[in-house]
Design a protein around this nucleic acid. Sequence first.
DNA 1: ATTATATTTAGCATTTATGCTAAATAAATG
DNA 2: CATTTATTTAGCATAAATGCTAAATATAAT
Lengths: 114, 114
Amino acid sequence: MLNIIMLNRPFPKSRAETELDDFELVFSALSHEDRRRILVVLLGRGGQMTAGEIVQRFTSSWPTMTRHLHILEHAGLIVVEKRGRERHYILQAKRMSKVLQSWNQYFSEVENES
Amino acid sequence: MLNIIMLNRPFPKSRAETELDDFELVFSALSHEDRRRILVVLLGRGGQMTAGEIVQRFTSSWPTMTRHLHILEHAGLIVVEKRGRERHYILQAKRMSKVLQSWNQYFSEVENES
DNA sequence: ATTATATTTAGCATTTATGCTAAATAAATG
DNA sequence: CATTTATTTAGCATAAATGCTAAATATAAT
């Protein structure tokens, strides 16, 4: 699987490298309106919903929503928990804030603006 | 032009609507690595560079970079100033921070996490 | 076991994004 | 004015993302 490839690195990624990967994953995940809406919907429901509850609130098909959920999961913006035949998706708001704040921090020194 | 269509609305957009548009524009703009790099490069040069200076630092062709610059401009992450035949692109770091922080604020109430 | 429910995976069609080359524009210079 | 320099616009080819339907999987219920 994909994991094998990723764990096969000769040495671990540096903090900075990981951060760059995070920016890629998080900004890509957040670039689609439905994916942003999923996070907002999750927030409104206390941060945790099943796949079915999420799908109900959108117009796209279930497979399409599943893919969005996987993209959000891969970016670390949600995590999944299997409970019987249900999948519970759990918002990772802190992780999202951290990544976005660390991006913002790069730019926080600047005062060169109108 | 595009402006005519946009100004033809019967009433102005609400604050919330504008914010949603901002999320779309900003997260889409930041979803491409070269566009994020342009902002970082601009930052390293004091927040202002000509189109040519920016293009020099990337491997993509000038037209490709021009398009990236326009996407960043449309998102409000840079502004352009014409000076003779040069275009000076100016980083709008504050605007970027504001948009990302306002997104983060939606999620800042949550403490439901590991 | 059989059926129903919850959800994902496969595979394909369509749209959108990206990247290029060639041509156009517009200011500066000889 | 002709030429060079800085940059954009047009138009097309390719890659990537999105969305769908059908099929598969896996757990729960009868």
